[in-house]
């Protein structure tokens, strides 16, 4: 299902959580929704799922308005930390209602996922650990097979093996049953390989929406002799820099054209990719965040200390 958001505003009393947001997402892809705490991610997804009404602007999913539109909301699933779909006595009770209310519920797959996450049907939800509750939310979200499925920080409390089990299950099920999936997360590096496109929001406004690869191509690490690195990065936007003796490494934001790349190679500099998380931090930081191109040699007791 495609999503069209135009001039979206959401107010909580005097506070504007979403401010004039406009974007559109094609159906059948996995999107990463990134933003700092309080940036409006949960609010945005809540509006997309019909959990709350927009204060202004329009939200259309599959070409139709969402709020109180049963034909659309039945195809949408948002799993939040609040646990609306699971906070009901036992695991089997949560599945009992999911099976009844979800039009595309796959009970066999739900059972398979329960086994994968080590959950038992007779477990009391309120006595489960945070990670187990998150895992149950994942089970409900995936087995619902909704055309638009959204997970809002659904990894909270899950240990690393469980998180990896989630990523594997998500990807495998997406390949078998393509649909639109939106993942909101702070674990950007763990999730980034899943994202086909990334939406970054900050303080209720859209910062960026583009393909993951395009975003990643905007950042480059430059490594080599400190003097050469400093000379090469002069005038560029430097996200961060590290220094070890005579060698320095700087992260640069912005496209490097072929001439610049050739110049770097001629100077003996090595160019490489940088992490999506570093780009995210740069894009959501306040102004004046650029780091010095190369930190002083004694700037940190840690020889590879982050100078940012």
């Amino acid at each position: 299902m495609n999503i069209e958001v135009s001039g979206l505003r959401v107010n909580y009393g005097d506070v504007r959580a979403i401010d004039d947001m406009t974007f559109s997402l094609d159906g059948g892809k996995i999107y990463g929704l990134l933003g700092r705490n309080g940036s409006g991610k949960t609010t945005l997804m809540s509006v997309l799922a019909g959990f709350r009404r927009e204060s202004g602007g329009t939200v259309r999913v599959g070409g139709h308005p969402v709020f109180e539109n049963a034909a659309i909301t039945r195809e949408i699933c948002l799993i939040r930390d609040a646990g609306e779909t699971i906070d009901i006595d036992k695991v089997e009770d949560a599945l009992y209602f999911a099976e009844w209310l979800r039009p595309h519920w796959d009970a066999a797959y739900a059972g398979e996922l329960l086994d994968r996450f080590g959950l038992r049907r007779n477990m009391k939800v309120k006595e489960m650990s945070k990670g187990q509750r998150s895992a149950l939310g994942v089970v409900v979200g995936l087995a619902g097979r909704s055309q638009l499925t959204m997970f809002d920080e659904s990894y909270l409390g899950m240990d690393a093996p469980s998180r990896y089990a989630f990523y594997d299950a998500l990807l495998a099920d997406f390949m078998e049953h393509p649909r639109t999936i939106i993942l909101s997360t702070h674990l950007i590096e763990e999730y980034s390989s899943l994202f086909e496109e990334v939406v970054i929001i900050d303080r209720g406004r859209l910062v960026l929406h583009e393909e993951s690869q395009t975003l990643l191509s905007r950042g480059t690490s430059v490594t080599g002799p400190a003097g050469q690195v400093e000379a090469f990065t002069a005038g560029l936007t430097v996200l961060g820099a590290k220094r070890l003796g005579p060698t320095a490494s700087a992260m640069v934001y912005g496209d490097l054209d072929e001439a610049q790349r050739r110049k770097a190679r001629e100077a003996g500099l090595e160019l490489g990719p940088i992490a999506m998380q570093d780009l995210f931090v740069h894009l959501t930081e306040g102004s004046g965040d650029a780091a010095p191109a190369v930190p002083a040699a004694d700037a940190s007791a840690n020889p590879f200390g982050d100078a940012r």
Binding site: A49, G50, F51, E68, N69, A70, T73, R74, E75, I76, C77, L78, I79, R80, E84, T85, D87, I88, F97, A98, L101, R102, P103, G144, S146
Partner: peptide
Amino acid sequence: LYIAHGQT
């Protein structure tokens, strides 16, 4: 529970 499961 109902709203989260796509009911109005």
